[in-house]
């Protein structure tokens, strides 16, 4: 029992105790950002790795969560007036859509429920029609593209291409303060930890077995008396909810939300990160998001344009040489060591 939880406990101690003590605020902020992406990756690991649903549009759910949070932050700062970007766009009255987001409980609930409801509607329509594989992937990608067009087109409602930025406080805390950022980091790390444990529990349950069965033989599952569409919809909705929550956390951590952060490319980048980390293992998905986040920052600091090529190359290398990603390589090495020790 203790042995089984040792890896998780070690990582948790490093993340919650060591990292805040050792990292300077700027670096801790970056790690918080990567952990937000890791929450999305966890959802992708569940939906794609376990459930076989290649979702290329997680940015949509991430964005819904992010915009919900950003709307709340903008409204608290405006103190009853209009958010700055609306004034610049010549909007004179607060749009009705915005009004309830002044309530933090509503905004946070919507950050999760919005994506969940959208995923349930989409999943019900799509999975009932037995759309799957590449068709599902293309559909979700189209959704991401459509979302960007919608956001950019509604300048007065969403801030258009620039999105929303200049957030100063959250629940009365100054967002520029290091202590606030450290607290935010701990919240993000805690949320990731709890979601990871919950997802792992789900994957190890009968539901997890059912999900793998749906991935590997959807038609056979149907003849076992289960409704695969329901299983897939529920799982897709769970991954969407995670992405939404990640988006809501991302906004105060990074200080901006814009269409460029949730379109086709960021959605794809996360899928690539999960593939590199290892989609078959939840920890691999999480690790992939953090590693790719760091790699992106490190490389962009050195050579601005090189990252895209490196990312593409890395993806190809992983897909051709180690299709199970870093986690797969780690498992193989661990297996070899164990058998070497046994002989």
């Amino acid at each position: 029992m203790i042995k089984r939880h040792l890896p998780f406990a070690t990582v948790a101690v490093i993340a919650l105790v060591a990292a805040p003590l050792l990292l300077e605020p700027f670096r801790l902020g970056l790690l918080a950002k990567y952990l937000c992406y890791a929450i999305v990756a966890l959802g992708i690991g569940l939906a794609w790795g376990k459930g076989g649903m290649l979702t290329l549009g997680q940015g949509v759910f991430f964005g819904l969560g992010g915009y919900s949070m950003a709307m709340y932050l903008k409204l608290t700062e405006a103190e009853g007036g209009l958010p700055d970007f609306m004034v610049w766009s010549g909007v004179e009255e607060l749009p009705a859509l915005w009004v309830p987001f002044a309530n933090p409980v509503f905004a946070l609930s919507m950050a999760v429920l919005g994506p969940v409801v959208l995923a349930v509607v989409l999943g019900t329509l799509v999975f009932r029609q037995r759309v799957r594989g590449a068709y599902f992937a293309i559909l979700t990608q189209a959704l991401a593209a459509a979302m960007v067009i919608l956001l950019v087109g509604q300048q007065g409602l969403t801030g258009g291409t620039n999105g929303m930025t200049n957030f100063f406080e959250l629940f009365g805390q100054d967002l520029a303060e290091d202590s606030t950022q450290r607290g935010l980091y701990l919240v993000v790390a805690g949320v990731l930890g709890v979601l990871y444990l919950a997802t792992r529990q789900l994957v190890n349950s009968r539901y997890g077995r059912l999900l793998v069965a749906v991935r590997d033989g959807e038609d056979r599952v149907r003849f076992l008396g289960y409704d695969p569409a329901l299983v897939k919809t529920v799982t897709f909705a769970a991954s969407a909810g995670m992405a939404g929550l990640a988006g809501a956390l991302f906004v105060p951590v990074v200080g901006i939300i814009s269409p460029a952060l949730l379109g086709v490319v960021p959605s794809l980048e996360l899928v690539v990160a999960v593939a590199v980390g290892g989609r078959h293992v939840l920890a691999g998905a999480v690790l992939g998001a953090v590693v790719m986040g760091y790699a992106k920052t490190a490389f962009s600091e050195q050579f601005a344009d090189g990252w895209l090529y490196l990312q593409g190359a890395l993806f190809i290398v992983v897909m051709t040489l180690a299709s199970k990603g870093i986690a797969g390589v780690a498992q193989t090495v661990a297996g070899r060591l164990r058998s070497a020790r046994a002989t």
């Binding site: 529990q201 789900l202 190890n204 349950s205 009968r206 539901y207 077995r209 059912l210 329901l230 299983v231 529920v234």
Partner: peptide
């Protein structure tokens, strides 16, 4: 029911 499946075997 689906929710009952979330328990471990």
């Amino acid at each position: 029911p689906l929710w009952a499946l979330t328990r471990r075997r």
